[in-house]
C-alpha cells in the first residue's frame, strides 16, 4: 500500500509506535493495509491476566482522528468490560473520544482496564455479576481463561 496517501498524522503515529514502543504493548501496521494494526498486550502484573499474551486488532476508520479507532480483543478474555466478540466497553472509544487522543493512549487505556476491571459499567452482564458477587471466584476464572487461551504465543 502506498503510504503517501495516508494522512501525515497516521504516518507519524505509526513511526512513533515503532520507534518508542510502550512497555508491554506492541502495535504494527498490517502490510497490505496501513490503517489496520496487529496489537499485542501482555497481561499486566498482579492482574489475573498476568503471563498471558493478548492479541487485538485495531482499525483506523476513514474519518480518524475525528472518529475513534475500532479495537477488539482477538484472544478470548474473561473480563466484565469485554463481550464474547471481544468488543471493549471503554468511554474513550465512544462518547469520550477526542481527536487529541492517539493509538498509544487508547492501548494504554485498555492495558489499564485489564488491571482494573470496571464491573459497574459492564458489557457482559454475567461476568460482571460474578465479579461483583464473588470476586475471588471471578479472578480464578479469569486466570483459568488466561491459562487456556492466552498462552499459545
Amino acid at each position: 500500500m502506498d503510504s503517501s496517501q495516508l494522512p501525515r498524522r497516521i504516518i507519524k503515529e505509526t513511526q512513533r509506535l515503532l520507534s518508542e514502543p510502550v512497555p508491554g504493548i506492541s502495535a504494527a501496521p498490517s502490510e497490505d493495509n496501513l490503517r489496520y494494526f496487529n496489537v499485542i498486550i501482555l497481561g499486566p502484573d498482579s492482574s489475573p491476566y498476568q503471563g498471558g499474551v493478548f492479541k487485538l486488532e485495531l482499525f483506523l476508520p476513514e474519518d480518524y482522528p475525528m472518529a475513534a479507532p475500532k479495537v477488539r480483543f482477538l484472544t478470548k478474555i474473561y473480563h466484565p468490560n469485554v463481550d464474547k466478540l471481544g468488543r471493549i466497553c471503554l468511554d474513550i472509544l465512544k462518547d469520550k473520544w477526542s481527536p487529541a487522543l492517539q493509538i498509544r493512549t487508547v492501548l494504554l487505556s485498555i492495558q489499564a482496564l485489564m488491571s482494573a476491571p470496571n464491573p459497574d459499567d459492564p458489557l457482559d452482564e454475567n461476568i460482571a455479576r460474578q465479579w461483583k458477587t464473588n470476586e475471588v471466584e471471578a479472578m480464578n476464572t479469569a486466570r483459568q481463561w488466561t491459562e487456556l487461551y492466552a498462552h499459545q504465543a
Binding site: M66, A67, I92, D95, K96, S98, P99, A100, L101, T105
Partner: peptide, 20 residues
C-alpha cells in the same frame, strides 16, 4: 472536530477543547 460534534447531537453546545 466541531462538525463531528454537531452531527452527534445537542451536546455540541457544551463543546470543550479537544485535549482530554
Amino acid at each position: 472536530y466541531i462538525h463531528t460534534s454537531i452531527e452527534s447531537g445537542p451536546f455540541c453546545l457544551d463543546l470543550r477543547c479537544p485535549d482530554p
